[in-house]
């Protein structure tokens, strides 16, 4: 197992984590999305077009990708946010498949240095070479991926301690009761969908520049449903949950060679059993709450001990 392979696996874990976090945010507000891969796709194409065709710098391309994804999420959110449960889920699925199928026929190419560059329907979009042109090594790019992931994760952790995060959890548990606290459920849900779109978008933009080549069929529903499953495996109590889910699937199982041909058989069975025991994942709200209380007690105990030692 060489270093390149390790970097590739870690990069993949990093990028899929964005989709998992994106789906997780919607699970927190009580909605299941089968369509987060659409925002990943929109941003991959958008940022690729910006850097490869318009010659924008990478950082601006990434920002642009996230922005495009956010706008796309807003466009989906407005008509669908009133739908509940399965209706919302299927609407996100329909939207995501529409995006993928439109990308299958979407052609927009310009000639750069005697070569045609740009998305070409189902043949995909080649030569998104911005990171190679600016001599960013695979390892440096890995650091960029994890740096951005850390920023997003810190954002989630701040959110979770804030009133806004509490509002998202309230909506996930009981929208009517949330409304009865004087809160506009619809507006907050739209906000959640847009934020989730932006998070997926960051992942998509990073992905396009890592692989330099994207094609529509990568963004099929399997990508989105995997992202969804990761949150439920790792747990819905904290943003670390989806990351744990990703780590278990890609990090652990992919690296055990003995089960390579049977990975999904083992993984599927394990997860099904896990969901029987813990329907909201390993780190569900109760587990996180328990940990938080223990942590607080520990800190209090330490402080008391410290004072005693001083005095």
């Amino acid at each position: 197992m060489g270093g390149d392979y390790l970097i590739a696996v870690l990069s993949n874990i990093g990028m899929i984590s964005f989709i998992a976090l994106s789906a997780y945010l919607l699970l927190v507000v009580g909605e299941i999305s089968f369509g987060q891969q659409a925002f990943f796709a929109v941003s991959a194409y958008g940022s690729g077009i910006a850097t490869a065709m318009w010659g924008w710098p990478i950082w601006l391309g990434l920002l642009w990708g996230a922005l495009v994804a956010g706008v796309a999420a807003l466009v989906v959110a407005i008509p669908t946010v009133r739908l509940r449960g399965l209706y919302f889920s299927v609407a996100t699925l329909a939207f995501a498949e529409m995006v993928r199928l439109i990308l299958e026929i979407f052609t927009y190419q310009v000639e750069i240095d005697g070569e045609l560059v740009g998305p070409n329907g189902s043949d995909g979009f080649r030569d998104i070479r911005a990171i190679y042109d600016s001599n960013v090594s695979a390892f440096e790019y890995l650091l960029i991926i994890y740096g951005l992931l850390a920023v997003v994760l810190v954002g989630f952790l701040i959110l979770e301690r804030s009133r806004l995060g509490a509002i998202f959890r309230m909506i996930g548990e009981d929208p009517m009761l949330t409304e009865m606290q004087g809160l506009n459920v619809t507006a907050h849900k739209i906000l959640a969908v847009v934020l989730a779109g932006v998070v997926a978008g960051i992942g998509g933009a990073l992905y396009a520049h890592l692989t330099t080549y994207v094609e529509p069929k990568i963004f099929n529903v399997m990508l989105g449903v995997h992202g969804l499953a990761y949150g439920l495996i790792g747990g819905l109590g904290t943003a670390f949950g989806p990351l744990i889910g990703v780590a278990i699937d890609i990090g652990l199982l992919e690296s055990i060679r003995a089960i390579s041909g049977y990975r999904m058989i083992v993984f599927g069975g394990l997860v099904a059993v896990l969901l029987i025991v813990r329907p909201r994942g390993l780190l569900d709200e109760a587990a996180v709450h328990w940990l938080r209380v223990r942590w607080r007690e520990l800190r209090r105990g330490l402080r008391r001990g410290w004072r005693r030692a001083e005095g």
Binding site: L164, A166, I167, R169, E173, D174, Q181, A286, H289
Partner: peptide, 24 residues
């Protein structure tokens, strides 16, 4: 109707979200 997955303290705290002075 309570938020069963939140703590007792949080359940009361969340009622303040839309009070004046607790804006976005």
């Amino acid at each position: 109707r309570i938020f069963r997955r939140m703590s007792v303290h949080e359940n009361v705290w969340v009622a303040q979200h839309s009070l004046p002075g607790v804006g976005p």
